[in-house]
Structures are given as structure tokens and as C-alpha cells.
Amino acid sequence: MESMNHGLGVDIAFLLLAALAVVTGWRVFRTDSMVRASFFLLVSFIAVGVIMILLAAEYLGVAMFFMMAVEMTVMALFMVMFMMNPAGLNPMNMVHQERIAIGAGVAGFLVLGAMALLAAFPDQPVPAGLEPVRSLGNEMLGDSMLIFESAGLVLLTTMIGVVVLSSHRGRYGAAAEGSMPPGLEPGSDPAGKPEEDEEGEHHHHHHHH
């Protein structure tokens, strides 16, 4: 540590941010609302992101901000929208399967703590002419940039396609109109089809298994 040429301010900032990350991480499990839990987790991640910037990983740190921001918003919103709690403001118990969780937590802490104490970390000061963004890009993607970019685009298209397909509303009206679910076996009746259909009479005897 002494060999690095950073100031006292960086040390103080690191300690404060580390404390913030740990405290907000702990609050995730002690709060009583899903929205609060998600955003405590976000604060914890942001603190880690700032620590990464202090470690001269400027791209990774800043990327952490926006990735976690979007991720936690989506998570909070989906939980609120689907989990039957008026806007997540009614108090909820945020922990379950406590014994397993405690066990996993203790084990994880011991392993990581042992690594921090026992592993030999390289002592490499950041070279003066380092371009962190460029070197990170080369390190992670190298020659495969085109493949990764194409894969990213395909994923985005897939996501949009899935949303479009799963919506009940199609461009030409209700998507389910006139459609038939596939059968459970090849050539069998449409699955889960209500019996009082126009053709219900005809298929009636097939339904007795």
C-alpha cells in the first residue's frame, strides 16, 4: 500500500465508501419493502463503483452505475407490479429461508475473507501512459469485437421480438383471436381449449383419459 502514490483523501474515501457499501448491503435485508431493498442494493453497488474508479478502473466503475441503475429499477418495478403489495409501501418481511441464507453467507464471508488475507496480490503500480478504456476493450474483446457487437444486436432484437409476440395486442387486433394452442401430443387436440367451443361437441370423447 505504501508504495502507491495516492493521497490521504483516497484512503478516507475508500473507507467511507466501503462502509457505505457494507451498511446499505446489510439494510437490504433489514428493510420492510421491496422497493427500498432494491434501492439499498443499488446504493451499495454505486459505492463499489466509486471504489472501482478510485482503483483507476474508470470505465468499469461508471458502467456499474448505469447498469445497476437500470437493473434495480426494473427489478423494483416488476416486484411492485406483480407482487400484490400496493406500491410496495405496505410493510413486508423481506427474508425467508433464513437458515440456509445464514449458512451460505457465513461460508461466503469465510472464503472471501481467507482469500483477502492469505492470497498474495501483485504489487503493480498503474503505468503512467495507461489508457484504461482502450486496454479494457482489448483485454475483454480483442479480435472478437464484431462477434460481440453482433450478438448484442441479436439479443436486443430478440428481446423486442419476445415482447411483441407475448403481447395480446397485435398489429391486426387481438393476437389470440382465431389462434389454436398446439396439442400435447403430435396430432392431438389443442391443449387447454375450453370445451364449450363451436367444435366442442365433436371432440368431446377425446377428453376422457
Binding site: 434501492f39 443499488l42 461508471v62 452505475f65 448505469f66 447498469m67 441503475a69 437500470v70 434495480m72 429499477t73
Partner: peptide
Amino acid sequence: GSVEALATV
């Protein structure tokens, strides 16, 4: 970009 994302939050 992060400012935009965090603004959503």
C-alpha cells in the same frame, strides 16, 4: 449515460 439511468431511479 449513468446520470440518465440514475435519473430514472
